[in-house]
Design a protein around this nucleic acid. Structure first.
Lengths: 207, 207
DNA sequence: TGCATTGTTGCAGTCTCTGCAACTTTGCCG
DNA sequence: CGGCAAAGTTGCAGAGACTGCAACAATGCA
């Protein structure tokens, strides 16, 4: 209920402003000193917030670095995925991409994050860890679609297949994101990039 | 130098025995009380070791739960991968599987770990996070092989391709592991399972 | 046996994170 | 406007994870 809140009240606007300020501050500090030479107290001082409040917002020290990625998949996007008839991995990537785009309005912060992640791979690990929760949910959705598409498949196979689909998508998404971020020139539609990446995966696995 | 050490001396044998004792104790405690109701002190008391030594061994509280997965890829296995001429994802999975098998001699502990992971998905996330570090190393190895196989490919493409190969393998490995663990009846050789899983991935991506 | 290497431990201290109880701000309605 | 309820922020005390250091113990080796 809060993820897509229209930021109407003063309260909401303050919250958003604060979040941005803290995220930006934490990223700047981490880029300058390295993640583990940054303390929560430093972040708080730089963004004028109390440590207690920091944890209320972000939960962990790295929370601000990763961003509040708690945005759940929109019902409507899930419906689209379930009733889409395209290549399943491709459709799934579109679902993920839509959610991603919806949750990340600040390109500036996004780029800093990218730079930081490139420098400190452990963060990417944390990112993955956070995704792990979502993967469960996602896998179920994929199972649903597979079961609907091929009703004669035994449930165990459906489960395996869904896991593999999610795994491939989860692996391909960062690559697609990277390619997309590099070709910032024309803001090429992510659909093209996704199709391209899938084609590559196909070639790799088929060879 | 220590990963494949033949446990010749008393020193080495002590180390192995201790490691096992601590891992087992931590898993038992976690299965009984839940991960976050277990403290390092509890683990230490149960396994008769000092907290300081615990951290020397495992580094983090969850270290003992995840197992000493710090085993680096053996040079020899890497060489095999680099000069192998098979399907690249398959060869890579064999490399990973070989390392995995080499580091996990205790089936008992392995099963407890499996049970715990099923109960607490967050741990799976940590597992992934830990892998993230290795992924870098692996990606480089894969790049090396791709570059050798197709010298005319531009470096950027090599990089992308390697990332995708690693991503697919990383996604497929847990599934292969699961299938393999379930078919414990005949201890079927993991090679068969791997080939099977890859075939599935191929079908998924190709459809 | 004696010495060098390696490993274990306790200690002091820093940092992350939590529950709780004030306190402050915002939203709202008469 | 005034005042009340809801929501949010903060400080504090404390548990627990983790580290560097220096003493101490065990092991390997000549």
């Amino acid at each position: 209920m809060s993820s897509v809140a229209p930021a109407s009240g003063l309260r909401e606007r303050n919250r958003v402003r604060r979040t941005r300020r803290v995220e930006r501050a934490s990223l700047e500090l981490a880029l300058e000193h390295g993640v583990d030479h940054v303390t929560v107290d430093m972040i708080c001082e730089a963004s004028d917030i109390s440590p207690r409040t920091y944890f209320n917002y972000f939960g962990t020290k790295e929370g601000a670095l990763l961003g509040l990625g708690n945005v759940p998949y929109a019902e409507s996007d899930i419906e689209v995925f379930l009733s889409a008839g395209g290549h399943i991995v491709e459709d799934l990537l579109h679902l993920v991409a839509a959610t991603f785009v919806a949750s990340e309005p600040d390109r500036d912060v996004y780029l800093m994050r990218r730079r930081l992640f490139a420098r400190e791979p452990e963060l990417q690990g944390l990112q993955l860890a956070r995704m792990a929760g979502k993967r469960h949910a996602l896998t179920r959705v994929v199972e649903q679609r597979i079961a609907a598409e091929r009703p004669d498949l035994p449930p165990a196979e459906v489960c395996d297949e869904a896991q593999l689909v999610v795994a491939v998508a989860a692996g391909a998404f960062p690559v697609a994101g990277r390619v997309w971020a590099e070709r910032e020139d024309a803001a090429e539609h992510i659909e093209v990039v996704i199709a391209d990446v899938i084609a590559r995966v196909r070639r790799i696995v088929a060879s």
